[in-house]
Write a protein that binds this DNA or RNA. Structure first.
Length: 431
RNA sequence: UCCCGAGUAACUCAGUCGGUAGAGUAGGUGGCUGUUAACCACCCUGUCGCUGGUUCGAGUCCAGCCUCGGGAGCCA
């Protein structure tokens, strides 16, 4: 049987249509009932007047409860009084299922309660809007890479080798082969793939068994990583800048309604244009110390440092060339200052902080072996990775963008857990 | 792991000086022809996180524990 979607109602003014969905809210004045129906594409108010519908249908209203599934038929009418501009004058209604004691009312709830009921909370307006923006961000990402001739290389999630030992790994038994680890990054595999495809990217879940309790961390999150042969650190930053602007323009075009629902001030996003400021780590430390931070040269930027720094600019800011000591082993040493590596983090504005980490990779066999030994990493585990430096090694760079952090920033959220359908945090594995 | 904070009805919270447990919302019943978090009247709702202690008497004071939230560290 044919039915229609709420997003299309304006095309059917004056016509009778059928909508299938869920009862979002209801109210009655006795002889006139109001039903708010949502179907995933929108919300519309249905109006049922006693005497204008069959008494049996009119009486069904009394059985309705919030989130009951129903099918309503009515005539589309333009009406100033209706939010959205259109409403349905109902002529028929069928009940599909009566919901009982739906826990999430259209009233304030605490975040713990809402995320305990995430399987239901997904239906509410706010998560609906956020996840629609997430959907568009991901489409923008894939579109950008496709248009720019990057090839998608899916990297393994179960790995034997350790990527970045700095973080903690989730461990699991891998049949009879011993321990396996859930991937923290696909980068090393992308570095293998550039010698076949030139420019590649991967997009998948990554896992960090860090007991972080902050609004910026998840234990399972989605990361986009790109790797480009023959790009140096500068080229890499140019690419990231272009990439991020593409994403922002895309969502500004597609997500106006969602931003309105989220009360996101989009003027902040409209300022995201080339060029992004680029400051060296040296300069960042200087600026931070002047601003009152306790940071010492040599240590990584803390969360508050990032916040201070990003509030100095209205656009995302690159901080490049960090001390070797606070970055991963695979980054290329600075040719003139061996205490630095060629890298850049991109910090999102409005206090959001790091959303991208990127670097030029060490393409020299001997110096890479040296770094692995310095970090006390098992050389064996990196045997295949090192071989890439033996067979046609080229300068190359890459970066990783945290999807949830990007969604958090673009939507103007205060906590990352809202940016993913079913968040995994230190104490949450359910639902 | 460390530092701070919270835990009272299904939800959000109040609970003074230690003296028999409260409100709003949700739910139920009735009323209402334009509601938008409707409104009006009435009804229902309790392991006060747990254990022990002090006390004639503990939601309230003390000790320990548990759970959760935020931050630090670490990172995207």
């Amino acid at each position: 049987m044919k039915f229609n979607y709420i997003e299309d109602v304006s095309k059917f003014e004056g016509q009778k249509i059928t909508i299938r969905g869920w009862l979002y809210n209801q109210s009655s004045k006795g002889k006139i009932h109001f039903l708010w129906v949502r179907d995933g594409t929108g919300i519309i108010q249905g109006v049922m007047v006693k005497g204008e519908v069959d008494d049996l249908v009119f009486g069904l209203y009394d059985q309705l409860t919030q989130e009951s599934s129903i099918e309503v038929t009515g005539t589309v009418r333009k009406d100033q009084r209706a939010p959205g501009g259109y409403e349905l004058t109902l002529s028929d209604m069928k009940i599909i299922q009566i919901a009982q004691d739906y826990p999430i009312t259209p009233k304030p709830h605490g975040s713990t309660f809402l995320f305990d009921h995430r399987h239901l909370y997904l239906r509410s307006k706010r998560p609906h809007a956020i996840l629609k923006v997430r959907n568009e961000i991901i489409w923008a990402i894939r579109s950008y890479f496709y248009q720019n001739h990057f090839v998608l290389i899916d990297s393994p999630i179960l790995t034997g080798a350790v990527g970045e030992t700095a973080s903690t790994l989730f461990e699991t038994q891998y049949l009879d082969e011993g321990k396996a680890y859930l991937a923290q990054t696909g980068q090393l595999y992308l570095e293998a793939a550039i010698a076949s495809f030139g420019k590649v990217y991967c997009f998948g879940p990554t896992f960090r068994a860090e007991k972080s309790k902050t609004r910026r961390h998840l234990t399972e999150f989605w990361m986009i990583e790109a790797e480009e042969a023959f790009y140096n650190n500068e080229d890499n930053m140019d690419l990231q800048e272009d990439f991020l602007i593409y994403i922002v323009n895309w969502v500004l075009e597609k997500c106006q309604n969602e931003f309105k629902e989220l009360e996101r001030d989009i003027s902040a996003l409209e300022k995201i244009k080339k060029p992004f400021p680029r400051i060296s780590y040296d300069e960042a430390v200087e600026r931070l110390q002047k601003a009152g931070s306790e940071i010492q040269w040599g240590s990584d930027l803390g969360g508050t440092d990032e916040t201070i720094l990003t509030k100095m600019f209205e656009k995302p800011v690159f901080v490049y060339n960090y001390p070797k000591a606070c970055k991963a082993f695979y980054m290329k040493p600075h040719p003139d200052r061996k205490e630095l590596v060629l890298c850049a983090d991109l910090l999102a504005p409005e206090g959001y902080g790091e959303i991208i980490g990127g670097s030029e990779r060490n393409d020299d066999y001997d110096s890479l072996v040296l770094r692995i030994k310095e970090e006390n990493l098992p050389l064996d585990a990196y045997k295949w990775y090192l071989e890439l430096r033996k067979y046609g090694s080229v300068p190359h760079s890459g970066f990783g963008l945290g999807v949830e952090r990007t969604v958090t920033w673009i939507c103007g959220l205060s906590h990352i857990r809202e940016a993913i359908p079913f968040p995994r945090t230190i104490y949450r594995l359910y639902p």
